[in-house]
Amino acid sequence: MRHRFAHHVRSVLSKILLCRTPVLKERRYRCPQCDYRSVVYNSCTDRNCPECSGARRRDWLDGTSQLVLPGVNYFQVVFTLPDKLSPLVLGNRRELYNLLFLAAWRALNHFLRRNGKFQPAALMVLHTWNQRLEHHPHIHAVAPGGGPALEGDEWMTSKHPDPSYRKPYLVNVEELGRVFQRRFMYGLRRLVRQGELKLEGEWSKLHDPAELKRWCQELQTTDWNVYVEGPQHGQSKPAHVLKYLTRYLTGGPIGDTRILRDEDGWVQFLARSKDKGRPQRVEPVELRGTEFVRRWALHILPKGFIRSRRYGGYHTTKSQAYLQRCRELLPPDTVKIEEEPKTPPAGERTEPECPHCHVPLESISKTPRPSWKQVFEIEVYRSAAIYCPLLHLLRSRPP
């Protein structure tokens, strides 16, 4: 069976297929000692490409690590949509992913302002897959458990209603889940009424107000999974708070280490079991190559869609003033800058080394990557089988 991908998806898959191949031209190097020669082909730089993900993740981590302050507890909050909504979301990704971000932030903002009495902030990242590469949209949010008071000049920390509760606390997760559900359903009904969603086939029934009301009531009875994870051992480590999220930013939904084999049109990879009530274990999952590529392509976001967003005090226009205010209100010993492992500046290229002399190679020539318009017009690309199992788009290619 051949799967017809959207034009944007075909474009992304095509770029990944050509990443680090002669079609994208090359950079040539030589060793100044033994005259060893090396050719490095240009990369596609697409955010979905497994080969081009390292630099993007590092740049994101460098840019967001400044938001995390020592001495503050940070919480991870996950907002998940029910599986019943998945087909509708796939047909309206941009609109409903945006709504997911908005509903999650408004629910979190509501509780931190009402119960915590401090200025909220959150860094949110969209994650669209599960271990088996199925569509499973949810938001991972990182939020501080304290902040500048809404009224007065003091630092406020979110506290549990029970004074005997000693662990770090953010919000009541059950109440947060109910507010998140109401916010999302309100926005969903508004989008349907305003005709901003594509409702085709079985979804066309939602144009009827009575049917829309019945469907929404039925959907609200299903589980909306929201949970809050506090800092391990009761204290956050700024160096580790954001690293967990970087794996979701670029490079696709599965890493090379999880793929076991690709033979005779079948792909086998590792995934956590679905058995509920039992300890989680890893088991092999086998899919046809075409189904594997179809699932992989489900997680290519709409063109220009932003996967990572900042809200509240972390918003780009407010972050500097917010962080400065936090440093002023926190005790001086808690905001002492911790030494982090130094990383190369964003965008800095590390030249390859000679495998014999172990010295940096000298650049001889650099041919810039041609424009995609030029690349897509060449005969090599026209003859490429876009619908074949694209397993090599997840395999490491030699430099």
Rank of each mutant, 00 (worst) to 15 (best):
E362M: 09
K342G: 06
S365Q: 12
D333Y: 11
L301F: 06
P302K: 06
T334W: 08
L330R: 04
A321V: 07
C354M: 05
Q280Y: 13
P284G: 04
R349H: 09
D275M: 12
R327C: 08
R369Y: 09
K342R: 15
S371H: 10
G313V: 02
P345A: 03
K366Q: 13
E351I: 14
E283Y: 01
D275K: 14
R310F: 09
Y311M: 11
S365T: 03
R278E: 12
P341Q: 09
T343V: 13
T317P: 05
V359T: 02
F305Q: 04
C354W: 02
Y322F: 13
P360V: 07
R309S: 01
E339M: 02
I364L: 15
R294Y: 12
E328G: 05
P341S: 08
F305C: 00
R327H: 08
E353A: 13
A297K: 00
I337Q: 13
V359F: 03
C357W: 10
R310Y: 13
L323N: 05
S308G: 07
V282L: 12
R325V: 00
K336C: 05
R294P: 01
P345F: 11
K366A: 14
E348Y: 15
G312V: 00
V282H: 07
Y311G: 02
K373H: 13
K276P: 05
S363Y: 09
K342M: 08
A321C: 06
I337L: 13
D333C: 09
G347I: 09
A346T: 12
E348K: 14
R295M: 00
T290Y: 04
G304Y: 10
R288P: 07
D275V: 13
E362V: 08
E362K: 12
I364V: 14
F305G: 05
S365I: 07
C357A: 08
C357K: 06
Q324K: 14
W372H: 07
K373E: 15
Y322T: 02
S319D: 13
R288H: 14
R281M: 10
C326Y: 03
A321L: 08
L329T: 03
G277K: 04
G304S: 04
R288I: 01
P355F: 07
Q324D: 11
Q324H: 12
P302C: 05
E286I: 12
F292H: 04
E328K: 14
Q320D: 15
G347K: 04
D275H: 12
G313F: 01
S371C: 09
G277V: 04
W372C: 01
P370L: 06
K318Y: 14
L361K: 02
H299P: 01
L361E: 01
G304K: 08
L287Y: 02
T316Y: 15
Q324T: 13
V335Q: 03
E283W: 08
F292G: 00
E338M: 06
L361G: 00
R307T: 07
I306N: 08
K373M: 12
R325I: 00
G313K: 04
R294Q: 11
E348C: 10
A297N: 01
A321H: 10
G347R: 06
E291H: 08
E353S: 13
E338S: 07
E351T: 13
